[in-house]
Design a binder for these strands. Structure first.
Lengths: 139, 139
DNA sequence: GTGAAATCGGAACGAATCAGTCCGATTAGA
DNA sequence: TCTAATCGGACTGATTCGTTCCGATTTCAC
């Protein structure tokens, strides 16, 4: 019931990347430095995000990363799915390989819960996440 | 992003227990037999559910289990929390021990997602889950 | 009152997944 | 052509999850 750390890091990394999107390419090392996360971990996250098609990577000297799509077209659900795979609370939702699937009265209700969760994640675009909300620390 | 197997088993077990609620006490072994789950696993699940106050156990010969509350007063969120602990997608939601909490622009958005998920789980009472929906298999 | 049976409760073991780290392959630039 | 910097994938260690087993407790029957 808890999001993996990698997924959490991926969200933070994507926010940083979104801020640099207008400024061209950014290296994974720089993103790690800005976010305060371990550089190798960021590299792993970046690798998954690139494979999922959310980031576009340019290799070689002077290379770097940039968003593959506009920030408005990337939702929180996309990022989570890129790292954790399809959003499915139970195995019933995507695969039907359940030992008690025939006598299971709970099965029909899982898609409802699953859709609610996915909807909540899809409702938040990257643009909103990347907004720096002029934080006012209340001491 | 996936529910643990234990939580899934807990939901199924609670459904079985709800059906036997009117008929008195049921042993964990019997629940395991009916649901087709391994008996030791059901015992572990029952143990957690009892500790959480969802089930009431009677020891000794002729003992068994019964719902501690009416089925209508038990929600899917209660069962999940009993097994998996508090529903918190990230550590930010309950504890503030995050390495980048001060510069994290994502943090304010997690409670929204978390509430949506918890609301979806809390909306489904055990009574609805226990209904046997006269399944009509479409071949 | 005693014995026996049946039950739950907690503890221990093994497996799988996840987080973190490192090195190699590739590519652009000089 | 060479160098340098980058991403990509593979490996190791650790944590958590799932499963199983055994002991403590309680009730019923005699």
């Amino acid at each position: 019931m808890r999001l993996s750390n990698l997924a959490d890091y991926a969200v933070v990394t994507m926010c940083q990347a979104a801020r640099h999107c207008g400024g061209g390419k950014v290296s994974a090392t720089e993103l790690a430095h800005e976010s305060g996360l371990p550089a190798p971990t960021v590299q792993k996250v970046v690798s998954k995000l690139t494979s999922a098609g959310l980031l576009r990577s340019s290799r070689g000297a002077g290379g770097g990363l940039q968003l593959a799509r506009p920030a408005a077209a990337i939702s929180l659900a996309d990022i989570v799915e890129a790292v954790e795979g399809p959003i499915a609370l139970t195995a019933c939702v995507e695969g039907e390989d359940c030992a008690v699937h025939e006598k299971c009265s709970v099965k029909p209700h899982w898609p409802i819960v699953n859709s609610a969760l996915r909807g909540a994640l899809a409702d938040i675009p990257l643009t909103r996440l990347a907004q720096i909300p002029q934080v006012k620390e209340v001491a």
